[in-house]
Design a protein around this nucleic acid. Structure first.
Length: 183
DNA sequence: CACCCGATTATCT
DNA sequence: GATAATCGGGTGT
């Protein structure tokens, strides 16, 4: 699913305003067998949602400053799993995203998991939200085949299970995260 | 571009 | 008390 989500559109509606971005970077997190996953310790706490319905949002707060958003994803035999959305290519409402971020440069607006939630005003109120139905936050229907290639690398910013190549990104693409991103 | 660091809080030991 | 699925600002090459 981390691969499949590349190229699809994440949409945030606020009143009559629409903000959206094309997903250009993702990371896969498994459950009980993935030491880097928040679901590694089981069906409890904030990770509870990762054991729930696919297509729902797992939003968590980290480093005392940032929210990150995941899409719950797993097959029917797997108890838990999610895909972290790491970067967006801004599409609609770029001016509002710039305002939310206090920046003007499009490539810096959503090029990181904490940046994209700030750009789209995504916070813990979306914990558990169903991203498959058109609401305040959803993934649009009509997935478009990416024209870019899919690059693969180890996941970023983790220490446990850091060897697993479960980060996926479209390349060439200037909107992917650049901190500590080596391909 | 590479590396370093402080901010700030939920979660775990 | 320590760590963390991060970011932005700083320094030095």
């Amino acid at each position: 699913m981390a691969r499949e989500l590349l190229g699809s559109l994440l949409v945030r509606r606020i009143g009559d305003q629409t903000l959206s971005g094309r997903i250009v970077e993702t990371e896969a997190y498994k459950g009980l067998e993935d030491p880097a996953s928040h679901a590694y310790k089981g069906d409890r706490g904030r990770a509870k949602i990762m054991f729930g319905e696919v297509g729902h949002a797992y939003v968590y707060f980290t480093y005392g400053n940032h929210f990150c958003v995941n899409v719950v994803a797993k097959d029917t035999k797997t108890p838990a799993g999610a895909v972290l959305l790491r970067a967006l290519q801004p599409v609609e409402g770029v001016d509002v995203m710039a305002k939310n971020r206090g920046l003007a440069e499009p490539r810096d607006l959503a090029s990181g998991p904490g940046k994209l939630t700030r750009a789209l005003s995504i916070d813990r109120s979306f914990y558990g939200a169903d991203l498959t139905v058109k609401g305040a936050l959803y993934i649009a229907e009509g997935w478009v085949e990416p024209v870019e290639r899919v690059g693969v690398s180890p996941r970023i910013g983790i220490k446990k299970a850091a060897d697993r190549p479960w980060r996926f990104f479209l390349e060439p693409n200037v909107f992917v995260s650049r901190y500590r991103s080596r391909t």
